[in-house]
Amino acid sequence: MAGNRQPPLDLLLVAGLVILTDIFVLVPALSGSFLRTVFGLLLVLFLPGYALTAALLPAKKDLEGIERALLSLGLSISIAPLMGLGMNYTSWGVREVPVLTGLSIFTLFICGVAYYRRVQLPEDEAFSVTVKTSISALKEEFLEEHGSGADKALAALLVISILVSIGSLAYVIGNPRGEEKFTEFYILGPDKVAEDYPTEYVLGNSGTVVVGITNHEYRTVDYTLEIRLQNRSLPLPEDQKYISLENNESWEEPVTFTPTIEGKNMKLEFLLFNETEKSVPYRNTHLWINVTKEI
C-alpha cells in the first residue's frame, strides 16, 4: 500500500511535461515558442518510453538508472511511429493534434500503470528518482572501486550515448532545416470518414462530400475550390468557392453539388487553386461516379 510514501517525482514530472507539451502546441499564443519544439521532442523521443519502462520494470533491481534512460529513448523511438501508423487507419489520419492526443493519453495512462505497480512493492524495493540518489548513483558507478572495468566502460558508453543524443537534438533545434511548405487537401464521405463516398446519382439530384483544407504554407493563402464533372464546372456558393486561410488554419465543410450530365464512370474532380496560379490546380483529388436519368 502507498501509506506515507513520497510521491513518485519522476512520474509526476513526466505527466507535467506531457501537459506542458499539450499547452504549448494547442494554445495559439504559445505555439510559436521555442519551448514548443523542446517539449514536442521530449514527448516524441523520451516521455512515452520512460513511462513504459517504469511500468514494465517497477523495481530498483530490475534496471539501473542510466540503462533506464537509454531504454526510454529506444522505446520512445519505437512508440511514436507505431502511434502514427495506427492513426493512419482512423478517420483522424496522421495529423499533429490526433498524434499529440494519442501520445499524451498513452503516456499518462502508462504513468498510472507504473505508479500502481510501484505501490504494490515495498517502498525500499520500488524504483524512485531523486536528485540526491541520482548523484550518488553516478559517483558510485564511476568513482568507487567495486565493479569490473567492463561494467564501468559500459556505463560510460551509455552516458556518452545519451549525451550525444541530447547534443544531436540540440543541434537540430538550433539549426533547423528550411520548413517544408504544403497544403493538405482531402475529401471525406458524409460521415467525415474516408469511405462511403456517394458515387451513384440520379440526374438533377445533389450529393454531398466533406472537403478539407489545411494551410501549412507559413503565410495566409487565398484558395479557390472548383468541382468539375467530365471537365465541366459545377456551381458552388461563394463562401465555399473562395477560402482564405492563415498559416496552420484548417477549413473542413460539407460541400453539396449537383451533377448536370448523365453517364457512367465519369470523373468528378475536386480542384484547389492557390492565389499565384489560376490555371493549374495546386492540389486535386477525384471520384468516379455514375449518373442516371430518373425513371
Rank of each mutant, 00 (worst) to 15 (best):
V129R: 00
Y223H: 04
L35R: 01
M266W: 01
W251T: 14
R283Y: 15
L17A: 08
L73F: 14
V202C: 01
A155T: 07
T260C: 07
N248T: 15
Y197W: 04
L12M: 10
L225R: 01
V172F: 13
V211G: 05
R118A: 14
T256D: 07
S78K: 07
K267S: 09
V18K: 00
V18A: 03
I162E: 05
T220V: 12
P254A: 06
D239C: 07
F270V: 13
L103W: 04
Y116Q: 10
L26R: 02
H216M: 11
Y201E: 01
R228Y: 06
L73M: 12
A155W: 01
Q6L: 14
E253T: 13
L56H: 00
T285Q: 03
V131G: 11
G212C: 07
E179R: 12
G178R: 08
L287Y: 08
A153P: 01
A51I: 09
A153T: 05
V164N: 00
G147I: 15
I162S: 05
V280C: 02
A114E: 03
L103K: 02
S161D: 01
V172I: 15
E277R: 07
L272C: 05
N215K: 05
A55V: 10
L229G: 04
I23Q: 02
L158A: 05
T90I: 13
I66C: 01
T21H: 05
G86L: 15
L41M: 10
E217T: 11
L73W: 06
R5F: 00
F257G: 03
Y186V: 08
R117N: 12
E226K: 13
L85Y: 13
E200A: 13
T133S: 11
K267W: 09
L163K: 02
Q120S: 06
Y116K: 13
A80K: 06
L121P: 03
Y116C: 06
S279D: 10
A156R: 03
L234R: 05
E140Q: 05
L56W: 04
N215V: 11
D191T: 14
P7E: 00
W92N: 07
V119P: 01
T133M: 02
H146D: 14
L70F: 09
I110W: 09
E125Y: 12
T133N: 03
F46K: 05
G167W: 03
R118F: 15
I19P: 00
A170Q: 00
H146Y: 11
L9M: 11
D191G: 10
W92E: 08
I227A: 02
L26S: 07
S250V: 12
I173R: 03
S78C: 14
E262R: 11
G112C: 10
